[in-house]
Structures are given as C-alpha cells and as structure tokens.
Design a protein around this nucleic acid. Structure first.
Length: 431
DNA sequence: TCTGGGGTCCTAGGACCC
DNA sequence: TCTGGGGTCCTAGGACCC
C-alpha cells in the first residue's frame, strides 16, 4: 500500500506556525512580485478567492475581510518542507518526495485498520513536530492514493486520513469522483473527455483500452490501470538529478535598458549554475529568453529565445559569458521588457567530463577554484554574499515583495535585525 | 499601476542513415 | 498506372504536475 501525505494549504500553514495569531483568519500567500494568490487558508478559500487569482482583482475583498497577505518566503517553506519530510521518513520503508508539500510513502502490507491507525499516528507526529497539518490517503497505487488523500482532506468525518483498498469501495468512490480531480487529467483532457460523455473517474475506467490509447496516448492507459489498482507508475525513491534547470523571473518593473536586463540574465545564470553544481552535473546546452509584458496589449510586444551549445561545464564564469553573448543576439532595443530567464540543458555527470581539447574556456581550473570558493562563502553567509560584477549591485530587476515574513528557520541575520529594530522601538516607547 | 516559477513526459514530423 | 523498408535522433509543441 502506498500513502500520499499532502500538507494542507502548505505555505499558509508555514506562516501560521510562526504567527499563531493567524489561526482562524483568512491567509493568502502571493507569487513572486506579489502577483497572484498561490496559497490560501481554508478561511480564504471560503471567501471565494480562487487559486492563481491576480491579487489586484481581489483587493477590495482582501481589505474588507481583513485577509492576511504574505509575499512568498521560499527559504522558510523549503526548510519547513525538509522538516516534514524528515518526520515522514521515520514511518515508511521508502519515501518519494514528490513536491515541496507532498510525499509518497511505501507502507508495505497491512489491514485497513492498521494502516489507518498508522496514518493517524503520522499525522499527529507531523503536526506535533513541525506544526504543519497534513492529509493522508492510502491505496494500492499512486493515483488511487491521490484520490484517497483528496477524500481525507474534503470529508471532515474522515479526520484527515483515508484508506482506500477494497475494490468494491473503490468503484463506488470513482463513480462520483469528478474526472477533473484525477491526477493527470488537466483542463484540456477533461474538456475533451467531457465531450465524449466521460465525466467521472469510473467512466474513464470503463472505456476500452484501444480508445483510451488513441485519445489519451499511453499516459491515459497507465492512468486507467492505476485507477483499476494495477501499479503502472514507478515509485521514485532516489531523488533523481534534474534534466533541465531553469531560473526565470518577471522584473519588479518593466525594463528598457540592455544593461539591466543583462544583469538579470547574469544573475539567473549564476543561480542555475549553483543548482547545477549541487547536483554534480555539467551542462552543455542553454536557452536564454526575454519577453515583454503580454498583459499590456497597448504596448508593442516582443518575445524571443535562443539555444546555444558548448562543451560541458559547471563553471559559472563561462556560463555567464555564454549567456551574455546569447542575450546580445536576441535583444532588440525599444521594448519594455518584463521577464528574462535562463534554462540549462543537456547534462552529463561531472565525473564523466572529458577535458577540452583546445584550452579551457569552459573548463578553466583557476576559475573553477574561484567558483567553488564562492560557493563555500555563499553557503556559509547566505546566498548572494559574494557575487559577480556582471550581476550589478543595485538589482534593478528585483522582485516586488512587500509582505515577506522573516526567514525564521534559516536566516538568523534577518531575525536578529528585526529583533534589534523592535527592541529599539520598545526602548524608545518606554523612554 | 497590477497577472508566478520550475519541472516532466509524450508525440509528430523532419533529417538522416543503411 | 507503377517509386521500399526499417531505423535513430532531434526539435517544437502540447499536455500535465505542484
């Protein structure tokens, strides 16, 4: 049996751990640049604030209902995630960390009663040790575990856990389970299937294989089997090296100046390169892209990307040089740019590096020593402590983040700074 | 004023090989 | 009248996930 553990309203719950006065109040967490709502407490959901809603469209409601609003704080959420996963690891033969707030657990065999008791114990321990509430569903396949978790979360009488093993019960559950909620059925496929008269999970299970194959490819066929209780997706316990690494951001404001966009691209490349080294890979492909703001129909639009190949490297300096050259080829003056990004691709393991034939522009020993030393410094003193001149000093492309909470678990300097400020304030008040 | 970021997998079609 | 068969690799685009 496989369990799926899903953190409830994860980012909103993280904020609550460090400010319990938020309990019972509507809380939302925003995307980068404070653009869209990406997490909502139950109270915020009840107010009708949809997932992904542009926050400016809900300004009135947010003010009227005193919704507590936070900018993203990924340092905090990432660290809280590690803590949750660490608790979960203690309860399973195997764990697959599926996303920042979800993990599959291999629970082995067991009666429904035993499995439910175990799920309840895991739930208790996670909230006790981390403060994060979770929902847990268990079933014979990953896709059914997803269904079970959905029920654990939506049906109060289940109290956060649900075991879905009996085939007859499974059939009843799938009969009323909306297709759109099935893992792997998105907006397009649900629309397409709706037209074919397929609206619930059981309808899909009852379609003949050749039809499923034709309309939904092998992906759909695997999905059907999973819903029937036949495992067709692998359990990925090892966290595999990424095949692509991307860093892209919208700018805080629109930018015209080449230099500022170049600084953003350099910064994104530095971030990508650090991620690349962390997974012990070298990249030999890169895509750089820029585009204007497509929401501004009143302004001229431009978007372009460029793909370049080079000898495998993990050298930040070489990658930044490459990215700058690439940007030069696609930049056109006269546009208001809104976003730039860098994607590294075509990886090889760093230990399979062959060594460049003609002197290393990409593998330069002295540069790599420098890059590694910078990694050590940034690891110890915080990201961005030592940076390249190419990145600029002013971060003109920086995000808008007006309401970020403190990085309580990872940035002591930030907490200290706030504590000093508040102490000064209170001393002033007293005097 | 204002609209996120980071991934994976699959298919179709073209280029090329023998 | 009539024009093979079997493969690989790559890329773009589309679908999905959180």
């Amino acid at each position: 049996m496989i369990a799926l553990v899903d953190c409830n309203n994860f980012y909103a719950s993280c904020e609550r751990v460090f400010d319990p006065s938020l309990n019972g109040k509507p809380v939302v967490v925003l995307s980068n640049n404070d653009g869209c709502v990406i997490a909502r407490s139950n109270e915020a959901k009840a107010l009708g604030i949809p997932m992904g809603a542009p926050v400016f469209q809900y300004k009135k409601l947010i003010e009227a209902e005193k919704v507590q609003v936070f900018s993203t704080n990924f340092a905090l959420y990432g660290d809280m995630s590690r803590r949750v996963m660490s608790v979960l690891s203690g309860y399973a033969k195997d764990i697959e960390i599926y996303s920042i707030d979800e993990a599959f657990l291999d629970l082995g065999e067991g009666t429904d009663e035993k499995l439910d008791a175990l799920a309840k114990e895991i739930r208790r321990q996670v909230v006790k040790q981390t403060g994060i509430p979770v929902s847990i569903g268990a079933a014979p396949t990953k896709t059914l575990a997803k269904v079970a978790t959905h029920l654990a979360k939506k049906r109060p009488e289940f109290k956060g856990t649900y075991v879905l093993s009996d085939p007859a019960v499974r059939e009843e559950v799938l009969r009323t389970f909306p297709l759109r909620e099935v893992w792997g059925i998105g907006r397009r496929l649900s629309k397409k299937l709706e037209l074919m008269g397929v609206s619930h999970a059981l309808d899909l299970v009852r379609l003949p294989d050749p039809l499923v194959l034709r309309e939904l490819t092998v992906v759909g066929l695997r999905l059907k089997k999973e819903l029937l209780g036949i495992p067709s997706l692998v359990f990925e316990s090892a966290n595999k090296a990424k095949k692509a690494i991307c860093t892209a951001r919208s700018f805080g404001t629109m930018l015209r100046e080449y230099d500022l966009i170049e600084q953003a691209v350099a910064s994104h490349t530095v971030t990508c390169a650090a991620k690349l080294r962390r997974q012990n890979s070298c990249a030999s492909g890169m895509m750089v892209f820029i585009h204007t703001n497509y929401f501004r129909e009143d302004l001229p639009q431009y978007k372009r990307n460029i793909v370049v190949s080079f000898p495998p490297t993990q050298n930040t300096l070489a990658l930044v040089r490459t990215a700058k050259e690439a940007l030069k080829k696609i930049f056109r003056p006269g546009f208001e740019y809104k976003k730039a990004g860098v994607i590294l691709t075509d990886f090889v393991r760093e230990d399979s590096l062959q060594g460049e034939l003609f002197n290393g522009i990409y593998e330069n020993k002295r540069e790599m020593e420098l890059v590694r030393a910078v990694d050590v410094l940034n690891e110890r003193y915080g990201r961005g402590t030592v940076r390249l001149g190419d990145q600029g000093l002013l971060d003109k492309h920086a995000l808008k983040q007006g309401k970020r909470s403190r990085s309580f678990t990872t940035r002591w300097d930030e907490i200290l700074e706030v504590n000093i400020r508040e102490t000064k304030k209170s001393v002033k008040r007293e005097t």
